[in-house]
Structures are given as structure tokens and as C-alpha cells.
């Protein structure tokens, strides 16, 4: 194996292959980033719906609970395939990248909703009550009192979810998104050693994920101290 790899190495690291890998790496990163950012917005909305008390919003609350519980129990691969075929059936001409981003978005929404909810609930109930009797409405309470305190609890797990999903987006290769895993398959199909192609891509994933994980731990400590 080692002789073969040594022999293939110069051909493997051509200018075009390196550009190809870098682009794929960027796609991998972007897929998780955009999906999780969109998911944070929607997840935040769902979390807020879940903590409301009014009877009027009960149907919305139930919908939010069902959404969160269901989409945390569906494999990402199945979501990808389902969304892929739904777009196809709707006759919408969108890129596979868009399909993958939407799938990440859907799943991330469910997970981040739970992260945000527990963050909001980590702020003592008395802070909510104090705001309530001062006539803050829900939006004002969240903006001025709860979020300034809850973000410390929300950010670290939300960030580690984002890092976790960088790895899960490998599955997007199955619907043809040219991300890191796909790029390894392409080079393997071109005749390069699988050990080299997949080994190199594993290394690339590691170089994205490891520093981000470390950064996440550092951030969590930093926040804890402040």
C-alpha cells in the first residue's frame, strides 16, 4: 500500500486536485454553517413558541413540540432523500447543494430549538416574573432580560452541534453534492488508491473539526469565567 501511495502522491497533489479539494472543503464547511445559521433562527422561534403559556397559541405549541420530537428521530440520510424527492416532485429546479442546505436546516432547527429552550429555561423563573410585573411583553423580556443572560448557556452547545454537523454533511455526497466525501470518491474512481483518497479526506475533516472543537471548549471556559 505504501509504495502505491508514494507512487501516486505526485499525481494526486496536482494544482487542479488541490483546488478541487479546497473547494470541496469549503462546501462542506458552508453546508453546515448556512444550515445551522438558518436552523438557529427557526430553532429560536420554535423554542420561544414552546415556552409560551397562552391558550391561544396552544396549537402552535403542539406543532412545535411535534416538529422538534420528530425531526430529532429521523436519520439525516432519510431527510436528505425525502427533501431531494420533494423538490423534484414540486418541479423546482434547485441545486443539490440547496437540497442539502435545506435538509441541514430542517434537522438543525429541531436540535437547536431544544438547545435554545433549555438555555431560556436556565434563566431563573424569577427574572421572567420581575419583567412581567414591570409590564414587559414577551419580545421585550426576551430581548432585554432573558437573552442577555441565556446566550452563555446556548452558545457552547449550539456551536458544538454545528461542528458535529460538519461531519454529518458527509452524507450529502449521496445526493451528489460535491463536498469532501464526494471529492474522495471522485479521485478514488479516477484510479487513485482508496487509502490515499479517503485517508487524505479524513485528514482534511480532522483539520476542520479539531481546531473548531478546541475553540468550542476554549469558548465555553471563557464564557464560564466571565
Amino acid at each position: 500500500m505504501w509504495e502505491r501511495i508514494a507512487e501516486e502522491l505526485p499525481r494526486f497533489f496536482t494544482y487542479y486536485n488541490v483546488i478541487f479539494f479546497l473547494k470541496a472543503m469549503f462546501t462542506t464547511f458552508l453546508l453546515s454553517l448556512v444550515g445551522c445559521l438558518l436552523g438557529s433562527v427557526m430553532g429560536g422561534v420554535l423554542a420561544v413558541i414552546k415556552i409560551t403559556k397562552s391558550n391561544l397559541l396552544r396549537p402552535l405549541r403542539i406543532a412545535a413540540v411535534v416538529y422538534v420530537e420528530f425531526f430529532r428521530r429521523i436519520p439525516f440520510l432519510v431527510t436528505l432523500l425525502l427533501i431531494f424527492f420533494v423538490f423534484q416532485a414540486l418541479g423546482l429546479e434547485v441545486s443539490v447543494f440547496t437540497v442539502a442546505v435545506v435538509s441541514v436546516w430542517i434537522i438543525a432547527t429541531a436540535f437547536i430549538a431544544e438547545i435554545v429552550r433549555s438555555g431560556l429555561e436556565a434563566v431563573p423563573k424569577t427574572q421572567w416574573e420581575a419583567a412581567e410585573v414591570l409590564n414587559f411583553n414577551l419580545r421585550q423580556t426576551l430581548k432585554m432580560v432573558i437573552l442577555p443572560q441565556a446566550w452563555k448557556v446556548i452558545l457552547p452547545p449550539a456551536f458544538s452541534f454545528f461542528v458535529l454537523f460538519i461531519k454529518d454533511t458527509a452524507l450529502a455526497s449521496q445526493i451528489g453534492v460535491v463536498e469532501l466525501t464526494y471529492s474522495a470518491k471522485v479521485l478514488n474512481n479516477k484510479g487513485f488508491s482508496a487509502a490515499l483518497a479517503f485517508g487524505f479526506v479524513l485528514l482534511l475533516y480532522y483539520t476542520i473539526s479539531y481546531p473548531l472543537t478546541k475553540f468550542g471548549t476554549w469558548m465555553e471556559k471563557k464564557i464560564e469565567i466571565s
Partner: peptide, 23 residues
């Protein structure tokens, strides 16, 4: 642990399935 938790499971299995036959 660091290798397992910082790389995708899918690519790990690809590696086992496609690369190990080479040795």
C-alpha cells in the same frame, strides 16, 4: 478518540471498506 470524534463515520467506513483491501 480524537480521530474518531473529529471525522465522519461515513468516511471511516469508506476507508475500511475500500482502503483495507489494498493491504
Amino acid at each position: 478518540v480524537s480521530f474518531i470524534t473529529n471525522t465522519p463515520q461515513l468516511v471511516q467506513i469508506y476507508f475500511l471498506y475500500f482502503a483495507l483491501p489494498e493491504v
